[in-house]
């Protein structure tokens, strides 16, 4: 059965690798789906919230002068309690209006870089600051557009990904257990003949070993008849042993005679 278990281990190892890769790919996809769902929703919210600011920008009114700006932003923030802050900023990144009373002077360097890369398109991405989602607000007479950014905590999403990882890993372990049982049964059927051949060989060797030490202890020797070609593996072992003993004896004899 040693051969059987060795092959079984290899198959389970391969199965485990496939399941582990599946869990890993699924987690990557889950993180992607989560990010897309949140990002797209925040973009819709940003678009809707930016409408009055865009109207002001179209006629060249500085965004800092938009009336009730903080109230407009606060109404948008209340659509989802998880939203950390919504900032409206000018072309340099300086924050003009925010739902956060203790907001920083300007948007983070990460957000500025993401704006540069997006080249005017709406964007969302995860940064060290959290999950950011932003669109541009063009202002008449200004070379570069201003913008609005929604800051969303990334912690919740990370916890969800880790929880998903734990759930899928547990499921993978359960699947692996069931498939181990299944492979034991199927492998037993497929390798039946080979395992029997292996076991027969092992039994023959065991029988030979037993007969060998019993002979050494004085039991009568069962010899392979002279002139008889050993046909089975057991007979071959016996014949080889007899030949070895006879050669040993022969060397002993010629060694004794000067």
């Amino acid at each position: 059965m040693t051969l059987f278990w060795r092959i079984w281990q290899a198959i389970i190892l391969v199965d485990l690798s496939v399941l582990a890769l599946f869990v890993w790919l699924a987690l990557l996809q889950f993180a992607g789906i989560k990010a897309d769902l949140v990002g797209e929703r925040l973009l819709v919210l940003a678009e809707q919230t930016a409408a009055p600011f865009k109207a002001a920008g179209r006629i060249g009114l500085p965004l800092a002068n938009v009336r009730n700006a903080n109230a407009l932003l606060e109404r948008a923030r209340q659509t989802d309690d998880t939203i950390q802050a919504i900032h409206v900023f000018d072309e340099t990144g300086r924050i003009l209006h925010s739902t956060d009373s203790a907001h920083p002077e300007s948007i983070s360097p990460g957000a500025l870089k993401a704006r540069r890369v997006s080249a005017g398109e709406s964007w969302y991405r995860e940064t060290s600051e959290g999950f950011l989602s932003s669109i541009d607000i063009p202002v008449l007479g200004r070379k570069a557009p201003s913008g609005i950014v929604i800051v969303y905590p990334a912690t919740g999403s990370n916890i969800q990904v880790r929880a998903m990882g734990a759930e899928l890993s547990l499921a993978a372990v359960a699947v692996l257990f069931v498939s181990s049982v299944l492979s034991t049964l199927l492998l037993g059927l497929v390798l039946r003949q080979q395992v029997r051949h292996f076991d027969d060989t092992e039994h023959t060797i065991s029988d030979f070993e037993r007969s060998s030490w019993r002979t050494a202890a004085g039991e009568s020797v069962k010899t392979v008849a002279n002139g008889y070609e050993p046909a089975t593996f057991g007979q071959l072992l016996q014949a080889a042993e007899e030949r070895y003993l006879s050669v040993c004896k022969s060397i002993e004899n010629v060694g004794e005679k000067p």
Partner: peptide, 11 residues
């Protein structure tokens, strides 16, 4: 059979 049964179950 083993690999696909595992993949479908986990799927």
């Amino acid at each position: 059979a083993i690999v696909f049964a595992s993949v479908v179950a986990l799927g």
